[in-house]
């Protein structure tokens, strides 16, 4: 079956992650005290809850991520066949360059408008 490498990868990933967790739990020395058991962030006592409201400005970053993510999808079909097309001519690479070029305009627009800056 052609998915065997994927299965092996998944099994190794789970086994490795599980082994590290279990071994450190079993072998690690444990001397708990209230100070050690308390949650900490950067050595500070935690301030409030982790789940508070986010600034709406992060939403723009998320939407831009979504758009560039959809762009990345088109690289999959390109990556599968561009090698065999490269033997004929550069047409496919040029087409991809146009595609990426148009989106780079968008990227520089984002940078120029300072959409990724906090201000």
């Amino acid at each position: 079956m052609s998915y065997l490498p994927v299965l092996i990868l998944v099994v190794i990933a789970i086994a490795l992650g599980g082994a590290i967790q279990i071994l450190s739990h079993v072998l690690g020395p444990k001397f708990p005290n209230p100070m050690k058991n308390s949650p900490f962030e950067c050595g500070m006592p935690p301030l409030g809850d982790a789940r508070h409201r986010f600034s709406v400005r992060f939403y723009l970053v998320a939407i831009l991520f979504l758009l560039f993510d959809v762009e990345a999808v088109f690289f999959f079909p390109f990556a599968v066949t561009f090698r065999e097309y490269l033997g004929i001519n550069m047409f496919m690479v040029l087409e991809m360059a146009v595609f990426v070029g148009i989106l780079l305009v968008g990227y520089f627009y984002v940078l120029r408008k300072g959409a990724l800056e906090w201000d």
Partner: peptide, 21 residues
């Protein structure tokens, strides 16, 4: 259509930035 998709995405990027900023 493939190349036009990039224009569509560009329009999305510009629109999102123009509205949000």
């Amino acid at each position: 259509p493939f190349e036009l998709t990039s224009v569509l995405l560009l329009a999305g990027i510009v629109g999102a930035v123009a509205i949000a900023k």
